[in-house]
Amino acid sequence: MVIVSAAAVTGGIGVVCGVLLAVAAKLFAVEVDQKVIEVRNALPGANCGGCGFAGCDALAAAIAAGKAPVNGCPVANKQAHEKIASIMGVTADESEKKVAHVMCQGCDTVAKQKYEYNGVPDCKAAAAVMGGNKSCDKGCLGFGNCKVVCAFDAIEIVDGLAVIDKDKCTSCGKCVEECPKAVIEFVPYKNNVIVGCHNKDFGKAVKDVCSVGCIGCKICEKNCAFDAIHVTDNLAKVDYDKCTHCMVCVEKCPTKAIQGDLLSRKKAFIVEEGCIGCTICAKNCPVSAIEGELKKTHKVDPDKCIGCGVCATKCPKKTIEMK
Protein backbone atom coordinates (compact mmCIF):
# COMPACT_ATOMS: atom_id res chain seq x y z
CA MET A 1 0.00 0.00 0.00
CA VAL A 2 2.80 2.34 0.94
CA ILE A 3 4.42 2.02 -2.44
CA VAL A 4 1.15 2.84 -4.16
CA SER A 5 0.61 6.04 -2.21
CA ALA A 6 4.25 7.06 -2.75
CA ALA A 7 3.94 6.49 -6.48
CA ALA A 8 0.59 8.25 -6.53
CA VAL A 9 1.89 11.32 -4.72
CA THR A 10 5.06 11.60 -6.79
CA GLY A 11 3.21 10.94 -10.02
CA GLY A 12 0.38 13.22 -9.01
CA ILE A 13 2.64 16.16 -8.21
CA GLY A 14 4.59 15.44 -11.39
CA VAL A 15 1.41 15.55 -13.45
CA VAL A 16 0.24 18.72 -11.69
CA CYS A 17 3.61 20.40 -12.39
CA GLY A 18 3.53 19.20 -15.98
CA VAL A 19 0.01 20.47 -16.60
CA LEU A 20 0.82 23.77 -14.89
CA LEU A 21 3.87 24.23 -17.09
CA ALA A 22 1.94 23.33 -20.21
CA VAL A 23 -0.78 25.81 -19.33
CA ALA A 24 1.82 28.43 -18.42
CA ALA A 25 3.62 27.88 -21.72
CA LYS A 26 0.38 28.68 -23.56
CA LEU A 27 -0.63 31.46 -21.21
CA PHE A 28 2.69 33.23 -21.07
CA ALA A 29 3.76 32.52 -24.63
CA VAL A 30 5.66 35.48 -25.96
CA GLU A 31 5.12 36.03 -29.64
CA VAL A 32 8.50 35.71 -31.27
CA ASP A 33 8.69 37.32 -34.66
CA GLN A 34 9.60 34.76 -37.31
CA LYS A 35 12.01 37.31 -38.71
CA VAL A 36 13.94 37.38 -35.42
CA ILE A 37 14.54 33.64 -35.64
CA GLU A 38 15.59 33.81 -39.28
CA VAL A 39 17.90 36.76 -38.71
CA ARG A 40 19.32 35.02 -35.66
CA ASN A 41 20.13 31.97 -37.76
CA ALA A 42 21.88 34.10 -40.37
CA LEU A 43 24.13 35.73 -37.78
CA PRO A 44 27.47 34.11 -36.91
CA GLY A 45 26.37 33.26 -33.37
CA ALA A 46 29.67 34.12 -31.73
CA ASN A 47 27.94 36.37 -29.18
CA CYS A 48 31.01 38.60 -29.24
CA GLY A 49 29.07 41.80 -28.58
CA GLY A 50 30.97 43.67 -31.27
CA CYS A 51 27.72 45.14 -32.61
CA GLY A 52 27.10 46.95 -29.34
CA PHE A 53 24.18 44.73 -28.38
CA ALA A 54 24.16 42.10 -25.64
CA GLY A 55 24.67 39.25 -28.09
CA CYS A 56 23.45 37.78 -31.36
CA ASP A 57 19.90 37.34 -30.01
CA ALA A 58 19.68 40.97 -29.00
CA LEU A 59 21.04 42.13 -32.36
CA ALA A 60 18.61 39.87 -34.23
CA ALA A 61 15.72 41.37 -32.28
CA ALA A 62 16.99 44.89 -32.99
CA ILE A 63 17.43 44.20 -36.71
CA ALA A 64 13.95 42.67 -36.97
CA ALA A 65 12.52 45.69 -35.16
CA GLY A 66 14.33 47.99 -37.55
CA LYS A 67 16.40 49.50 -34.76
CA ALA A 68 19.71 48.24 -36.11
CA PRO A 69 21.02 48.20 -39.68
CA VAL A 70 20.90 44.87 -41.52
CA ASN A 71 24.66 44.88 -41.64
CA GLY A 72 24.93 45.71 -37.94
CA CYS A 73 27.06 42.65 -37.30
CA PRO A 74 30.71 43.59 -37.81
CA VAL A 75 31.88 39.98 -37.88
CA ALA A 76 29.45 38.56 -40.43
CA ASN A 77 30.64 38.45 -44.01
CA LYS A 78 28.95 40.00 -47.01
CA GLN A 79 26.87 36.93 -47.83
CA ALA A 80 25.42 36.91 -44.33
CA HIS A 81 24.60 40.60 -44.59
CA GLU A 82 22.84 40.01 -47.89
CA LYS A 83 20.92 37.10 -46.44
CA ILE A 84 19.75 39.21 -43.52
CA ALA A 85 18.85 41.99 -45.93
CA SER A 86 16.75 39.60 -48.01
CA ILE A 87 14.97 38.37 -44.86
CA MET A 88 14.18 41.96 -43.99
CA GLY A 89 13.25 42.73 -47.58
CA VAL A 90 15.76 45.51 -48.11
CA THR A 91 18.97 45.76 -50.03
CA ALA A 92 22.17 45.83 -48.04
CA ASP A 93 23.97 49.04 -48.77
CA GLU A 94 27.59 48.52 -47.98
CA SER A 95 27.97 50.46 -44.77
CA GLU A 96 31.29 51.88 -43.91
CA LYS A 97 33.47 49.23 -42.33
CA LYS A 98 35.17 50.37 -39.18
CA VAL A 99 38.34 49.05 -37.67
CA ALA A 100 40.04 49.48 -34.34
CA HIS A 101 43.06 51.75 -34.31
CA VAL A 102 45.61 52.51 -31.61
CA MET A 103 45.61 56.28 -31.20
CA CYS A 104 49.21 56.44 -30.09
CA GLN A 105 52.55 56.36 -31.86
CA GLY A 106 54.64 56.51 -28.72
CA CYS A 107 56.82 53.46 -29.20
CA ASP A 108 59.70 52.91 -26.81
CA THR A 109 62.12 54.95 -28.92
CA VAL A 110 60.08 58.17 -28.93
CA ALA A 111 58.05 58.08 -25.70
CA LYS A 112 59.81 58.87 -22.45
CA GLN A 113 59.56 56.51 -19.52
CA LYS A 114 58.21 57.72 -16.20
CA TYR A 115 59.98 54.93 -14.32
CA GLU A 116 61.38 51.51 -14.94
CA TYR A 117 58.56 49.00 -14.66
CA ASN A 118 59.57 45.54 -13.59
CA GLY A 119 56.20 44.18 -12.57
CA VAL A 120 53.81 41.78 -14.22
CA PRO A 121 53.83 42.34 -17.99
CA ASP A 122 50.20 43.39 -18.08
CA CYS A 123 48.75 46.76 -19.11
CA LYS A 124 46.19 46.84 -16.31
CA ALA A 125 48.76 45.99 -13.67
CA ALA A 126 51.16 48.64 -15.02
CA ALA A 127 48.37 51.20 -15.26
CA ALA A 128 47.66 50.62 -11.58
CA VAL A 129 51.14 51.93 -10.72
CA MET A 130 50.94 55.70 -11.25
CA GLY A 131 49.09 55.25 -14.51
CA GLY A 132 51.78 53.24 -16.20
CA ASN A 133 55.45 53.52 -16.99
CA LYS A 134 55.15 55.81 -19.99
CA SER A 135 55.44 59.49 -19.15
CA CYS A 136 52.48 60.26 -21.36
CA ASP A 137 49.31 59.66 -19.42
CA LYS A 138 47.31 58.76 -22.53
CA GLY A 139 49.74 56.51 -24.35
CA CYS A 140 49.72 52.85 -25.23
CA LEU A 141 51.59 50.88 -22.55
CA GLY A 142 52.42 48.10 -24.96
CA PHE A 143 52.17 45.07 -22.68
CA GLY A 144 49.65 43.61 -25.08
CA ASN A 145 46.44 43.01 -23.15
CA CYS A 146 44.68 43.84 -26.41
CA LYS A 147 46.76 41.27 -28.25
CA VAL A 148 45.69 38.61 -25.75
CA VAL A 149 41.97 39.32 -26.09
CA CYS A 150 42.06 39.65 -29.88
CA ALA A 151 40.46 36.49 -31.24
CA PHE A 152 41.50 37.32 -34.79
CA ASP A 153 45.22 37.64 -34.28
CA ALA A 154 45.09 41.19 -35.64
CA ILE A 155 47.28 42.91 -33.02
CA GLU A 156 51.05 42.91 -32.81
CA ILE A 157 53.25 44.60 -30.27
CA VAL A 158 56.00 46.45 -32.07
CA ASP A 159 58.63 48.26 -30.01
CA GLY A 160 56.32 48.71 -27.01
CA LEU A 161 53.35 49.77 -29.04
CA ALA A 162 50.24 47.87 -30.11
CA VAL A 163 49.69 47.91 -33.85
CA ILE A 164 46.43 46.68 -35.35
CA ASP A 165 46.32 45.04 -38.75
CA LYS A 166 43.25 46.66 -40.23
CA ASP A 167 42.70 43.87 -42.72
CA LYS A 168 42.45 41.29 -39.96
CA CYS A 169 40.39 43.49 -37.62
CA THR A 170 36.70 42.60 -37.45
CA SER A 171 35.86 45.54 -35.17
CA CYS A 172 34.54 43.23 -32.47
CA GLY A 173 35.59 45.81 -29.89
CA LYS A 174 37.25 43.41 -27.44
CA CYS A 175 40.50 45.40 -27.43
CA VAL A 176 38.67 48.71 -27.01
CA GLU A 177 37.02 47.28 -23.92
CA GLU A 178 40.22 45.75 -22.56
CA CYS A 179 42.58 48.71 -22.92
CA PRO A 180 43.01 50.42 -19.53
CA LYS A 181 44.22 53.58 -21.26
CA ALA A 182 41.25 53.76 -23.67
CA VAL A 183 43.72 54.44 -26.45
CA ILE A 184 42.00 52.23 -29.03
CA GLU A 185 39.29 53.82 -31.13
CA PHE A 186 37.19 52.85 -34.10
CA VAL A 187 38.09 54.59 -37.35
CA PRO A 188 36.71 54.04 -40.84
CA TYR A 189 38.55 51.29 -42.69
CA LYS A 190 38.97 53.51 -45.74
CA ASN A 191 40.55 56.32 -43.80
CA ASN A 192 44.29 56.33 -43.44
CA VAL A 193 44.84 59.85 -42.16
CA ILE A 194 44.57 59.60 -38.41
CA VAL A 195 45.85 61.75 -35.57
CA GLY A 196 47.79 59.12 -33.64
CA CYS A 197 47.63 60.83 -30.27
CA HIS A 198 45.21 61.21 -27.39
CA ASN A 199 47.14 63.69 -25.30
CA LYS A 200 45.18 66.86 -24.58
CA ASP A 201 47.96 68.66 -22.70
CA PHE A 202 49.52 71.87 -23.92
CA GLY A 203 52.35 71.79 -26.43
CA LYS A 204 55.29 71.86 -24.08
CA ALA A 205 53.88 69.25 -21.75
CA VAL A 206 53.34 66.92 -24.71
CA LYS A 207 56.83 67.61 -26.10
CA ASP A 208 58.31 66.74 -22.71
CA VAL A 209 56.88 63.25 -22.72
CA CYS A 210 56.79 62.20 -26.36
CA SER A 211 58.30 63.45 -29.59
CA VAL A 212 55.40 62.34 -31.82
CA GLY A 213 52.52 63.73 -29.78
CA CYS A 214 49.98 66.27 -30.99
CA ILE A 215 50.96 69.65 -29.56
CA GLY A 216 47.80 71.42 -30.67
CA CYS A 217 49.65 73.89 -32.91
CA LYS A 218 46.75 74.11 -35.39
CA ILE A 219 49.06 74.03 -38.41
CA CYS A 220 47.02 71.12 -39.76
CA GLU A 221 43.77 73.00 -39.23
CA LYS A 222 45.09 76.07 -41.07
CA ASN A 223 46.41 74.04 -43.98
CA CYS A 224 43.43 71.78 -44.50
CA ALA A 225 41.55 72.87 -47.61
CA PHE A 226 38.52 70.84 -46.70
CA ASP A 227 37.83 71.91 -43.10
CA ALA A 228 38.38 68.28 -42.18
CA ILE A 229 40.72 68.58 -39.20
CA HIS A 230 40.07 70.56 -36.06
CA VAL A 231 42.00 71.18 -32.89
CA THR A 232 39.88 71.03 -29.76
CA ASP A 233 41.40 70.90 -26.28
CA ASN A 234 44.90 70.95 -27.74
CA LEU A 235 44.29 67.81 -29.75
CA ALA A 236 43.71 67.60 -33.48
CA LYS A 237 40.96 65.33 -34.69
CA VAL A 238 40.24 64.31 -38.27
CA ASP A 239 36.65 64.60 -39.47
CA TYR A 240 36.58 61.30 -41.35
CA ASP A 241 33.55 62.29 -43.41
CA LYS A 242 35.24 65.36 -44.82
CA CYS A 243 38.81 64.08 -45.14
CA THR A 244 39.89 63.51 -48.74
CA HIS A 245 43.26 61.91 -47.91
CA CYS A 246 45.19 64.77 -49.46
CA MET A 247 47.66 64.35 -46.60
CA VAL A 248 48.65 67.99 -46.50
CA CYS A 249 48.26 67.80 -42.73
CA VAL A 250 50.52 64.74 -42.64
CA GLU A 251 53.19 66.73 -44.47
CA LYS A 252 52.82 69.88 -42.41
CA CYS A 253 52.56 68.35 -38.94
CA PRO A 254 55.73 69.43 -37.11
CA THR A 255 55.77 66.45 -34.74
CA LYS A 256 54.55 63.85 -37.27
CA ALA A 257 51.65 63.10 -34.97
CA ILE A 258 49.32 62.63 -37.91
CA GLN A 259 49.57 59.17 -39.37
CA GLY A 260 49.29 58.74 -43.11
CA ASP A 261 51.34 56.98 -45.72
CA LEU A 262 52.59 59.69 -48.07
CA LEU A 263 53.79 57.05 -50.52
CA SER A 264 50.25 55.81 -51.01
CA ARG A 265 49.14 59.27 -52.04
CA LYS A 266 47.29 59.33 -55.32
CA LYS A 267 47.78 61.76 -58.20
CA ALA A 268 45.10 63.14 -60.49
CA PHE A 269 45.50 62.21 -64.13
CA ILE A 270 43.46 63.72 -66.97
CA VAL A 271 42.56 61.39 -69.82
CA GLU A 272 43.18 63.61 -72.83
CA GLU A 273 40.46 62.27 -75.09
CA GLY A 274 37.70 63.02 -72.63
CA CYS A 275 38.70 66.52 -71.53
CA ILE A 276 36.52 69.27 -72.98
CA GLY A 277 38.45 72.11 -71.35
CA CYS A 278 35.62 73.32 -69.14
CA THR A 279 38.09 74.57 -66.45
CA ILE A 280 35.86 73.31 -63.65
CA CYS A 281 38.67 71.13 -62.29
CA ALA A 282 41.14 74.00 -62.33
CA LYS A 283 38.70 76.25 -60.49
CA ASN A 284 38.06 73.66 -57.83
CA CYS A 285 41.63 72.52 -57.25
CA PRO A 286 42.62 73.66 -53.73
CA VAL A 287 46.32 73.81 -54.64
CA SER A 288 46.06 75.21 -58.19
CA ALA A 289 47.74 72.15 -59.61
CA ILE A 290 45.66 72.11 -62.80
CA GLU A 291 46.44 74.39 -65.70
CA GLY A 292 44.87 74.76 -69.08
CA GLU A 293 43.02 77.24 -71.22
CA LEU A 294 39.32 77.19 -71.93
CA LYS A 295 38.33 74.46 -74.41
CA LYS A 296 41.80 72.97 -74.40
CA THR A 297 43.01 69.83 -72.68
CA HIS A 298 44.07 70.52 -69.12
CA LYS A 299 47.19 69.26 -67.43
CA VAL A 300 47.84 68.29 -63.83
CA ASP A 301 51.12 69.34 -62.31
CA PRO A 302 52.09 66.14 -60.47
CA ASP A 303 54.43 68.03 -58.14
CA LYS A 304 51.64 70.27 -56.91
CA CYS A 305 48.85 67.69 -56.91
CA ILE A 306 48.00 66.45 -53.43
CA GLY A 307 45.65 63.72 -54.56
CA CYS A 308 42.56 65.05 -52.84
CA GLY A 309 40.32 63.91 -55.67
CA VAL A 310 38.17 67.04 -55.72
CA CYS A 311 38.75 67.51 -59.47
CA ALA A 312 37.74 63.92 -60.15
CA THR A 313 34.43 64.37 -58.36
CA LYS A 314 33.76 67.76 -59.99
CA CYS A 315 34.67 66.77 -63.56
CA PRO A 316 31.43 66.67 -65.60
CA LYS A 317 32.90 64.18 -68.06
CA LYS A 318 34.38 61.91 -65.38
CA THR A 319 37.61 61.97 -67.27
CA ILE A 320 39.97 62.47 -64.35
CA GLU A 321 41.46 59.33 -62.86
CA MET A 322 43.10 59.02 -59.45
CA LYS A 323 46.17 56.82 -59.66
Binding site: V9, T10, I13, C17, A24, V30
Partner: peptide, 25 residues
Protein backbone atom coordinates in the same frame (compact mmCIF):
# COMPACT_ATOMS: atom_id res chain seq x y z
CA UNK B 1 11.16 9.90 2.79
CA UNK B 2 10.03 11.29 -0.59
CA UNK B 3 11.27 14.73 0.45
CA UNK B 4 14.39 14.92 -1.74
CA UNK B 5 12.81 13.73 -4.97
CA UNK B 6 9.70 15.85 -4.47
CA UNK B 7 11.69 18.97 -3.73
CA UNK B 8 13.86 18.51 -6.81
CA UNK B 9 10.75 18.03 -8.93
CA UNK B 10 9.11 21.11 -7.48
CA UNK B 11 12.19 23.32 -7.76
CA UNK B 12 12.76 22.35 -11.40
CA UNK B 13 9.13 22.97 -12.33
CA UNK B 14 9.07 26.21 -10.36
CA UNK B 15 12.14 27.63 -12.06
CA UNK B 16 10.69 26.82 -15.46
CA UNK B 17 7.43 28.42 -14.48
CA UNK B 18 9.09 31.54 -13.10
CA UNK B 19 11.12 31.87 -16.28
CA UNK B 20 8.02 31.77 -18.44
CA UNK B 21 6.16 34.12 -16.14
CA UNK B 22 8.96 36.67 -16.11
CA UNK B 23 9.40 36.49 -19.88
CA UNK B 24 5.80 37.56 -20.32
CA UNK B 25 5.14 39.92 -17.46
Amino acid sequence: YLQTIMFILIIAALVQFVEMFLKKS
